[in-house]
Design a protein around this nucleic acid. Structure first.
Length: 566
DNA sequence: ATCGTGGGCGCG
DNA sequence: AAAGCGCGCCCACGAT
């Protein structure tokens, strides 16, 4: 990410068959210098030795396939070029004249979620593209696109994306420390005692019986939306859906117990005892993270619902004995990114300090913090109706530059165009079906209903592109933040006292969780303060990398604790 | 039996 | 209370 006096050393590392590896060291011209053929027994020691010599850039198919088995063997990679992750960026970017030619060989397959991950699962068969020749060929094509961009943004983005690939595997390998005891206690306290076989926990049974009795249907399945809807209508609750927000607007005896039941049912089905047994082993929750899994560049996850853990369960996230959690998040990351992207100094002034919304109130454009919040969210999401939509125009008066940026992104989307994040990740093109619909609506003899539907779909896509630039740039800030945190933690000395868990992170402070704009580190208590400083420094560096000297605050809410509970 | 879809809701 | 963006997962239910 920084300029170097000498070109970085590059090594292509490929798994060419289930039990063998090939490494090809490149010279400065990018030509093959040395070739090594290594078995699984030898690759770990060889890679570790190369890492000690300096820190080469490992050119790999993707971390998910290559790094997971290496980590299982106790080897870490410092930096890579992840061809699969970068392919998606360089193929879709509109920031260069000639983007990467699309190739299905370099598109990530849907992740396979293993119930019981093992070393052997991680070593399953590589694909046909996983040969040194194919990797080198694809790398050269990708470098050409990156080098053609001129301002280095795609270089920064692809480096950060590749680092994200490594971090995702490391976080899975390390796991999030999770107390099964505390989780169980929360479940029992909330749901009631655990049923022995099949049935519902006691508190849920009570709520369900109350609902059925009020609805006068002792056999009603509360989990069946159509049946529940009919039952509600029978007692005069005229709702169109069984959603929480609509039910809450009705004043009927059934509403309270029904909402209570729904809340408990959600906890049981999403994060109950079955979830605990499936996803937490040896005191660690190990989800599969999918860097770049969202079109905007945000991460997705597969299995375990890693990015939807309810806040009520955060008490179960507990540091090991003698270790601490460093829990940090950014307040209002997206509007801060918007202010910086637009170069809107007025909005940047509002963003000074911990609460951007307070700064918006101070301009006088809105009266309260809550109004500021809904105005800002409405501006970024494209609200047009309701109180949020009503507040947005006031923001146009005080922050014309920021609003022009998102309004323009929306206009481009409505016209079927492509928008890009700050570092050059571009939005997907609308579907052929979308384009046909728009074309049909402009015909002289178009049906009025077709025009109406087409206009609505156009505005839908405009709201998507409006949000894309902001959400995607926030994802880039977070990615650099993560990479910089990891880089600093790697400089830390070994822990004075190993954590009880096994694996390569037993003696190392490490990233344990990431959720869009929040991180959790698991660190030895002696290193907690230094780790917290690393997190703060990393945030400052991320802001500078993206926006240089533009004066935008990105303050962290950070705490060192034994539990992740707020 | 198995698959796809929609409602609902958890997270940011 | 606000209805505007992005996800993953559970359940029921109808189609196969």
């Amino acid at each position: 990410m920084t300029s170097r006096r000498t070109p970085e050393r590059r090594i292509v590392l490929a798994r060419e068959n289930p039990r063998g590896w090939t490494a090809v060291e490149l010279d400065d011209a990018g030509e093959e210098r040395h070739r090594h053929t290594l078995g699984d027994d030898a690759v770990a020691a060889w890679v570790a030795a190369e890492e000690r010599e300096d820190t080469p850039r490992w050119i790999i198919r993707t971390a998910r396939e290559v790094y997971a088995p290496l980590l299982a063997m106790g080897v870490r990679l410092t930096r890579t070029h992840d061809l699969l992750l970068c392919h998606a960026i360089l193929r879709d970017t509109d920031q260069v004249a000639r983007p990467l030619a699309p190739s299905p060989e370099w598109v990530r397959q849907d992740p396979v979620v293993e119930d019981a991950p093992s070393l052997f699962d991680a070593l399953e068969q590589p694909t046909s593209a996983d040969s040194v020749a194919a990797l080198l060929d694809q790398f050269r094509l990708q470098r050409r696109v990156i080098d053609s961009s001129g301002d280095g943004r795609l270089g920064l983005l692809t480096s950060a994306e590749s680092a994200g690939g490594l971090i995702a595997e490391e976080m899975r390998a390390a796991g999030l420390p999770w107390s099964e005891t505390i989780h169980d206690r929360i479940l029992v306290d909330t749901l009631g005692s655990r049923p022995l076989a099949g049935g519902l926990p006691s508190v849920m049974v009570g709520e369900a019986d109350r609902v059925r009795s009020i609805l006068g249907d002792p056999a009603l399945n509360l989990d069946s939306q159509p049946k529940l809807l009919r039952a509600l209508h029978r007692v005069g609750v005229q709702v169109e859906s069984t959603g929480r927000w609509e039910l809450a607007r009705h004043d009927h005896a059934v509403v309270g117990p029904l909402l209570a039941y729904k809340k408990l049912a959600r906890l049981l089905s999403a994060n109950g005892w079955a979830w605990l047994a499936e996803w937490v082993h040896d005191g660690r929750f190990r989800p599969v993270y999918i860097p770049g899994g969202v079109v905007t560049g945000r991460w997705a996850s597969a299995g375990g619902g890693a990015l939807q853990i309810p806040r009520s369960l955060r008490r179960a996230v507990r540091a090991d004995a003698g270790w601490r959690l460093v829990v940090a998040d950014v307040a209002q990351l997206e509007p801060r990114m918007l202010a910086a992207m637009a170069g809107d100094r007025a909005m940047a002034r509002a963003a000074q300090g911990a609460d951007l919304y307070a700064g918006v109130v101070a301009t006088g454009a809105v009266g309260t913090r809550e109004e500021a919040k809904y105005a800002v969210l409405g501006a970024m999401y494209g609200a047009t109706t309701g109180d949020s939509g009503r507040l947005v125009p006031r923001l146009r008066k005080v922050y014309p530059r920021a609003m022009a940026l998102v309004d323009e992104a929306a206009r481009i989307g409505e016209d079927g165009g492509v928008v890009s994040t700050w570092l050059g990740r571009s939005s997907p093109r609308p579907s052929d079906e979308w384009a046909r619909m728009q074309a049909r609506a402009t015909d002289a003899d178009a049906e009025p209903s077709d025009v109406t539907v087409a206009r609505r779909r156009a505005r839908d896509w405009g709201r998507f592109t409006r949000n894309f630039v902001v959400q995607g740039t926030a994802a880039e800030w977070s990615l650099i933040w993560l990479a910089e945190i990891r880089h600093r933690l790697q400089q830390f000395p070994e822990a004075p006292r190993p954590a009880p868990a096994s694996g390569v992170f037993r003696t190392r402070p490490h990233l344990a969780f990431f959720l869009h704009d929040e991180v959790i580190l698991h660190v030895p208590e002696e290193q907690a303060e230094a780790a917290a400083d690393a997190v703060r420094e990393a945030a400052a560096v991320a802001t500078r990398r993206l926006f240089g000297d533009f004066p935008i605050d990105v303050p962290l809410d950070l705490r060192i604790a034994e539990s992740a509970e707020k």
